[in-house]
Design a binder for these strands. Structure first.
Length: 349
DNA sequence: TCGCATGGGAC
DNA sequence: TGCCTTGCGC
DNA sequence: GTCCCATCCTAGCGCAAGGCA
């Protein structure tokens, strides 16, 4: 049954700045056999229904604030999007939290995909229940890996690639509840590196799922360290954390209250980036922050309070790429962080 | 998850 | 069967 | 009285599933 929001279905698409990495790597590709493993989805038990009094409508402020940081405020995807040309010999990796593939496709996902022409595209919150067979995707990306949640139309992570990986993994080793991880992680192993795409657990309204997130962080940290001992790692996707106070517009009022900016989350993230000395692990690089040490640029804006227009956002969901230990690798010849873009992210939390 | 109103404590 | 409402997550 | 801080309350979207004519 189609959703019946039509009458009130305002087209709500927020564009965000997008981060992307062109990582030149002549040996990125491999001759390994294709390991596209289909994910399956299972019907979920229906949710318990509770009665709730309808909220009283409140008049909205008609304030037309001035955009801040020159960030785009349009809510629909333009038909024509331009990105800088790819560098010769580079592999372009991009990430986008699409908040529903079906919805994204209605709103111009195709335009973005054609314009960006990423070699590897990480998608999060796909909300798909089966591996999509859309020719638009299959023609451009011969290798597609969909991690699908057991919970219908919930979470979902995918990596679409023009390059064939050696192997693919949809698990987070060591996590005590593998079911809760389904749909949140895809790891591709290439000849020269690992690429991880994640849709990290959201700490939830009232931080009610912070414990689950802490559990995720604990095991993910171990996992990424283990991989890094073997090959360099690139990690992208929706990381659901604003690492530092310059990664969100109002750090003071949100500290330890709002999911994405709590002590537990920021500390866990910092420890992934800069492992404690005793662990002997190599430090990792937040590429966006490395190249834009002071820029306040956000990837997420709340629907509430006209945050988009006011420039009140967070750098938390997409736009984060972390290239780990690239310097010891001869494979990665150059690294360019291109923050141009139109990131299409109309998620809300 | 912003910005305002409200209330309480410190000074 | 299909429109409409409700609930949930973010 | 003034300042500071904590707390409260709030929007809009995508989607599935249930209610009901």
């Amino acid at each position: 049954m189609p959703p019946k929001r039509a009458a009130a279905s305002k087209r709500k698409l927020e564009e965000d700045s997008e981060s992307e990495v062109d990582a030149a790597t002549s040996k990125f590709a491999s001759d390994a056999s294709d390991s596209d493993a289909p994910s399956t989805s299972k019907p979920k038990a229906k949710k318990a229904k509770t009665t709730k009094a309808p909220k009283a409508a409140k008049p909205k402020p008609a304030k037309a604030a001035k955009p801040i940081n020159d960030q785009p405020t349009n809510k629909t995807l333009p038909d024509e999007i331009q990105f800088p040309a790819k560098n010769e010999g580079c592999v372009r990796i991009a990430t986008w939290n699409i908040c529903g593939l079906a919805a994204a496709q209605k709103k111009g996902f195709k335009h973005y995909m054609e314009a960006e022409d990423a070699d590897v595209l990480i998608l999060t919150e796909t909300k798909v229940n089966n591996d999509p067979v859309d020719p638009m995707l299959t023609n451009r990306y011969p290798h597609r890996y969909w991690s699908i949640s057991d919970k219908k139309t919930y979470s979902g992570t995918a990596i679409l690639s023009k390059i064939k990986p050696l192997s693919v993994d949809y698990t987070l080793p060591g996590h005590p509840d593998p079911k809760s991880i389904k749909g949140r992680i895809v790891t591709l192993e290439f000849e020269s590196l690992y690429l991880i795409g994640t849709y990290v657990v959201n700490a939830g309204t009232g931080l009610k799922t912070l414990d689950a997130k802490n559990e995720w962080n604990k095991h993910f940290t171990t996992y990424i360290r283990d991989l890094d001992r073997k090959k360099p790692v690139i990690w992208g996707g929706d990381l659901n954390v604003a690492p530092t106070e310059i990664d969100l517009a109002n750090p003071k009022t949100n500290w330890n209250k709002t999911p994405g900016y709590t002590e537990a989350e920021t500390r866990a993230f910092a420890e992934i980036l800069t492992p404690p000395e005793k662990e002997g692990a190599k430090p990792m690089i937040d590429t966006w922050r490395k190249m834009h040490p002071e820029t306040r640029h956000y990837t997420y804006f709340s629907y509430r309070f006209n945050c988009r227009e006011k420039g009140l956002g967070w750098r938390l969901d997409t736009c984060k790429f972390f290239i780990f230990v690239i310097w010891h690798s001869l494979i990665l010849i150059s690294l360019f962080l291109l923050v141009v873009g139109i990131l299409l992210w109309w998620n809300m939390r």
